[in-house]
């Protein structure tokens, strides 16, 4: 039996026996990424809708910037948050560096542009269709926003899931601001990187499988949801 085969069998047994070390890492990963996505959605959905609804000087620049930030390298996001939170930084007093909170902030920075930029695109397209009718109902821009967000809900759920995919898969940002501290800030991606280096292929592979499964589930859910909505709502 080769090392890889061996590692694979051990990895499977780690997953199937719900190995506590593995489970803790998975739990923290989900906690951090889900929190980041929640915060990003709470800010990004209304922000994106507002960008679609209101025209103001510099709007074009904001849109370009947001689109550019969709491709922000995670290590750069991590570095930015690190500089903010490090002891000499403007938010150093809070003592957040190397805590899960810092990781949530870093991933929020990564996910927010995705949610806001894609929300703007979807809401703008829907607004093109709805604007006259909603104006005819006597609705101003602020009152159009909830209607548009609700009617774009299927597309927006996909947007949020895409954001979750990015958050859960990135390694650079959480590594820099979290520090990969065992039992405190170690998440799936940073653990995989570390365990691979250490030669603990079984744990790395086990985590890799869980991560893969998670990403596949998220994408599958997004796909099914979109298909169902297209068939039902037209």
């Amino acid at each position: 039996m080769s090392t890889a085969d061996n590692a694979f069998t051990t990895a499977l047994s780690l997953i199937l026996t719900l190995d506590p070390v593995l489970m803790d890492i998975v739990r923290l990963s989900l906690q951090v990424s889900l929190s980041a996505v929640l915060v990003a959605a709470l800010i990004g959905l209304p922000l994106g809708a507002a960008l679609a609804l209101w025209a103001f000087p510099g709007r074009g620049a904001v849109v370009v910037l947001l689109n550019a930030f969709m491709g922000l390298p995670p290590v750069v996001a991590g570095l930015m948050v690190y500089l903010m939170l490090s002891r000499a930084g403007p938010l150093g007093q809070l003592g957040l560096l190397f805590t899960p909170t810092a990781m949530v902030i870093a991933q929020t920075v990564l996910v927010l542009p995705i949610v806001a930029a894609l929300t703007r695109q979807h809401i703008e397209a829907l607004l093109g269709e709805y604007r006259e009718q909603l104006a005819s109902f006597g609705l101003g821009r602020a009152r159009m926003m909830p209607t548009l967000l609700w009617d774009a809900r299927v597309a927006l759920i996909t947007v949020v899931l895409a954001g979750f995919g990015r958050a859960s898969a990135e390694v650079g940002a959480v590594l820099i601001v979290g520090g990969n501290i065992d039992g405190v800030t170690r998440v799936m991606t940073t653990a995989i990187a570390l365990e691979t280096n250490r030669g603990n292929l079984a744990l790395a592979l086990g985590l890799g499988l869980v991560l893969l499964l998670l990403v596949a589930c998220v994408n599958g859910a997004a796909h099914l949801l979109g298909e169902r909505a297209r068939r039902q709502m037209g």
């Binding site: 709805y130 006259e132 009718q133 209607t147 009617d151 299927v154 709502m233 037209g234």
Partner: peptide, 8 residues
């Protein structure tokens, strides 16, 4: 309107 604008 000519093409009814109905909500989803």
């Amino acid at each position: 309107f000519q093409r009814p604008v109905l909500l989803k």
